[in-house]
Design a protein around this nucleic acid. Structure first.
Length: 428
RNA sequence: GGAGAGGUGGCAGAGUGGUCGAAUGCGCUCGACUUGAAAUCGAGUGUACCGAAAGGUACCGUGGGUUCGAAUCCCACCCUCUCCGCCA
């Protein structure tokens, strides 16, 4: 959520920054804000008057005036009159506040100054590449889902029977590889100072709003209607809301969390795309990293977070590149985002496997997460960052394709062998 | 699912219609004492909104209601805890 004060006082700058993402007209919001403040001012003056009257009644009675006498009665009537005036203003103010809130909740974050300006993903900027020399020749490379089915370690057909399309069932070494990846990633992150969290993966609507999925992206989520609970689309949701409505102290920051969770997404609007394989499923596993940090350090923390995600790919020896998203492709809550894209030989393409974002104070304001700086008055909103470290299914896909061998087997990456108890996956 | 208890400031815990944003204790900050620390003593210490400021307003789980006036009374809802049932 954007700061209404910022919008009010620096309208031109905010308008320009939003303009880089698309078209947003702030004028209706500003008009509502003007009206709201005018009414609030009036109402609070009347309220003061009413408080005075109330006090006067108490005063008189304590001084021995007849509670039913003329003097007190006159004051009561005065009180009633003021109360009526207030009663007329209150619904107006409530309505205005609701409208303002509604607009604020649908405005995306401002892109950072350093974010490249562009309309679509075509204008994203490649920042760096790693592991070019590891890219295998693509001759004879099968797509991961064919490898998986040949090895007997994944089944899409049976998953349709159990659930529907866009689900996978992993079998034997496939299940073990998924589990190995989760363990490996968590071990790496906890070793580097991230505290492991295993949160609820059903979350309420307040949580979905706090991290930015609601109200705008209700279509994308799976919901349990009877309970007002949603299946988490990402661990970012429970992790953000873990500290919702809290006031932290500056010596607690930065807070680093990592979490493994299943993630659930409808993937509405992508019906024709990635219909086969592990790339786009309704349910997938992800290890997420999340930071609550001091505003002064959030952009440096984004570099660190991205490096933490990259380290997983480097340890797995998977070639990848780092993309900085342009303003037109930036996520709703993000001010600056790096995507990590891993090389998929069968497609001869890089595919997104991680997204690392600095949301600055956007989620902090939505979820009301503040911190107190010792020696300073008042509170400030924390800055939050999130990054996949990594999407597990896509990592599995990348391993199967990059590590496949001429005989049809798949070599297990060195760092995973101790988790798998084997160095090769073969058809059984 | 059934029965009961309860939700007050960073924490603990008073407060059952008026001067209560809220006693007291702990914690925290500053000061005094001390070589330093502890202990002790003194002062201070919530958040948000409006306002240039003075100041004003709101907030005692949430939302309504009664009243000139509500933490306190009434209604609804939410949540937590205990016991019973069920259950991995």
């Amino acid at each position: 959520m954007l700061d209404i004060k910022l919008i009010r006082n620096q309208t031109a700058q905010v308008q320009a920054a939003l303009g880089k993402r698309g078209l947003y007209d702030l004028q209706p919001l500003l008009d509502l804000d003007d009206k709201q403040r005018e009414i609030e001012k009036k109402r609070s003056e009347l309220q003061a008057q009413s408080n005075e009257t109330g006090k006067a009644v108490g005063q008189k009675i304590r001084e021995g005036a007849d509670p039913n006498g003329e003097e007190v009665k006159a004051l009561r009537e005065e009180g009633n009159r003021v109360k009526q005036e207030i009663g007329a203003l209150e619904p107006q103010e409530r309505e205005l506040n609701a409208q303002i809130e509604e607009i604020l909740l649908t405005l995306p974050n401002l892109p950072s100054d350093s974010t490249p300006v562009g309309k679509s993903e075509d204008e994203n900027v490649e920042v760096r590449r790693w592991g070019d020399e590891l890219i295998p020749s693509s001759a004879g490379r099968l797509p991961h889902y064919e490898i998986g089915e040949k090895l007997g370690i994944m089944s899409f057909e049976r998953s349709v029977k159990i659930a529907q399309s866009r689900f996978v069932t992993l079998i034997g070494a496939g299940a073990a590889l998924e589990r190995a990846l989760i363990s490996f990633m968590l071990a790496r992150h906890t070793h580097e100072g991230y505290t492991e969290i295993l949160p609820p993966i059903l979350v309420n609507s307040d949580s979905m709003q706090g991290s930015g999925q609601l109200p705008k992206f209700a279509e994308d989520g799976f919901k349990c209607d009877r309970d007002d609970l949603w299946l988490t689309p990402t661990a970012e949701v429970p992790l953000t809301n873990y500290h919702r409505d809290e006031v932290l102290t500056d010596d607690q920051l930065p807070i680093n969390y990592c979490a493994y969770t299943p993630c659930f997404r409808r993937e509405a609007g992508s019906y024709g795309r990635d219909t086969r394989g592990l790339i786009r499923l309704h349910q997938f596993n992800k290890v997420e990293m999340y930071k609550f940090v001091h505003p002064d350090s959030s952009f440096a923390e984004l570099e660190a977070l991205t490096a933490d995600a990259e380290d997983i790919l480097q340890q797995l020896k998977l070639p990848y590149r780092v993309i900085e998203l342009c303003t037109g492709d930036l996520g709703f809550g993000s001010a600056k985002t790096y995507d990590l894209e891993v090389w998929l030989p069968s497609a001869e393409k890089y595919r997104e496997i991680s997204s690392c974002s600095n949301c600055v104070d956007f989620q902090g304001r939505r979820a009301n997460i503040r911190f107190k700086e010792s020696g300073k008055k008042g509170t400030q909103y924390v800055h939050t960052l999130n990054g996949s470290g990594l999407a597990v299914g896509r990592t599995m896909a990348a391993i199967l394709e990059n590590y496949q061998q001429p005989d049809g087997s798949v070599k297990v990456p060195d760092v995973l062998q101790k988790y798998m108890g084997t160095d090769t996956i073969r058809a059984t």
